[in-house]
Simulated assay, not measured.
Amino acid sequence: MAKRLVVFDCDGVLVDSETLSAQAMRELVAAEGLRFSPADALALIRGRKVAAWVAELEQRLGRALPPDFVPEFRRRAAALFTTSLRPVPHVRQVLDELTTPFCTASSAPREKIEHTLGLTGLLPLFQGRIYSAYEVGSWKPDPGLFLHAARDTGVPAERCAVVEDSLPGVLAAVAAGMAVFGYAPPENGTAASLAAAGAVTFDSMTALLDLLAKWSSGLPVSASISARENALLQ
């Protein structure tokens, strides 16, 4: 039987970095005259290329941001990562127990991926299996990054499953012809939009192993599931 592959997004799926990145962005744009709530800041950047949300900020401002805005954003975010970054709850257990081959494919630069995985102790699990959009020249929602990961590992797209937390990521996986599981913790408020885009959603990593086990066995997985529902099924 042909092998399968699980493709994990990084930010927000493996490492709990997006809230910290949103904090860094909020602090910087406040000095430029823009105010965001934590939730709105997170919604703006989640799953998107930095250049895309920077362009949106400039459109709102009606002018260009300072030339050092992006380098300063990356510096502040990296400083927050060093002091406060943690793995997404329960994801280490998922990775330790997952028997299907897996990799990570992220819209972030490789240096950031390796830095955040290293800080959280996850990097050894992904050595040689890291794919960055910056190296492929394709950013979600374009499916190119996921298709590249599938080709590089020799797995047909239809036998790949993607674990994502963002709408661009879900759209990219669907466009690639891959199964997609949408991580949607209640505080994110994203379950409905991810499900509408084609994801099977779940609200805790404690539910993911069972979902992937069904998928890898070829069983239909069409209903979204919560951590509470998953516990009742045990």
Rank of each mutant, 00 (worst) to 15 (best):
residue 1 M to R: 13
residue 9 D to G: 07
residue 133 A to Q: 03
residue 11 D to N: 03
residue 156 P to M: 02
residue 21 S to Q: 14
residue 20 L to T: 06
residue 127 Q to C: 12
residue 100 T to P: 07
residue 53 W to K: 11
residue 39 A to T: 11
residue 201 T to E: 08
residue 103 C to K: 08
residue 71 P to E: 13
residue 150 A to V: 01
residue 51 A to R: 14
residue 88 V to K: 09
residue 41 A to K: 10
residue 76 R to K: 09
residue 131 Y to H: 12
residue 196 A to I: 00
residue 159 R to D: 02
residue 163 V to E: 10
residue 213 A to Y: 05
residue 25 M to F: 11
residue 118 G to M: 13
residue 75 R to Y: 03
residue 141 P to R: 14
residue 70 V to S: 12
residue 115 H to C: 13
residue 4 R to W: 06
residue 103 C to H: 06
residue 115 H to E: 15
residue 143 P to L: 01
residue 199 A to C: 08
residue 219 L to D: 14
residue 84 S to P: 03
residue 189 G to Q: 06
residue 158 E to C: 12
residue 174 V to H: 11
residue 116 T to V: 15
residue 41 A to E: 10
residue 118 G to Y: 13
residue 69 F to G: 11
residue 58 E to W: 01
residue 180 V to S: 03
residue 89 P to E: 15
residue 56 E to T: 08
residue 102 F to Q: 00
residue 191 A to N: 01
residue 50 V to I: 15
residue 177 G to H: 01
residue 174 V to C: 08
residue 140 K to I: 00
residue 100 T to I: 09
residue 227 A to N: 00
residue 39 A to Q: 14
residue 231 A to Q: 08
residue 191 A to M: 02
residue 221 V to K: 04
residue 157 A to P: 01
residue 129 R to L: 12
residue 15 V to W: 00
residue 206 T to W: 09
residue 125 L to R: 15
residue 190 T to R: 05
residue 57 L to R: 03
residue 225 I to P: 00
residue 17 S to D: 07
residue 75 R to G: 05
residue 2 A to P: 14
residue 130 I to W: 04
residue 93 Q to M: 12
residue 14 L to W: 10
residue 34 L to Y: 08
residue 94 V to D: 05
residue 169 G to Y: 01
residue 89 P to H: 14
residue 219 L to Q: 13
residue 98 L to G: 02
residue 215 W to R: 11
residue 68 D to W: 15
residue 142 D to V: 04
residue 170 V to Y: 03
residue 55 A to F: 05
residue 204 S to T: 00
residue 124 P to W: 02
residue 58 E to A: 09
residue 224 S to G: 15
residue 63 R to I: 04
residue 13 V to Q: 01
residue 205 M to G: 04
residue 27 E to P: 04
residue 116 T to H: 12
residue 31 A to Q: 12
residue 161 A to Y: 04
residue 120 T to I: 04
residue 102 F to D: 01
residue 128 G to I: 02
residue 181 F to K: 00
residue 158 E to Q: 15
residue 176 A to G: 12
residue 118 G to K: 13
residue 111 E to P: 05
residue 133 A to I: 01
residue 26 R to S: 10
residue 45 I to H: 12
residue 48 R to Y: 03
residue 100 T to A: 08
residue 218 G to T: 05
residue 82 T to I: 08
residue 171 L to S: 07
residue 83 T to R: 15
residue 144 G to W: 09
residue 90 H to F: 08
residue 221 V to Y: 07
residue 15 V to N: 04
residue 137 G to R: 06
residue 186 P to M: 03
residue 18 E to Q: 06
residue 85 L to R: 11
residue 142 D to L: 10
residue 139 W to Y: 13
residue 135 E to R: 10
residue 40 D to A: 14
residue 132 S to Q: 05
residue 234 Q to M: 03
residue 194 L to G: 02
residue 91 V to K: 09
residue 151 R to T: 11
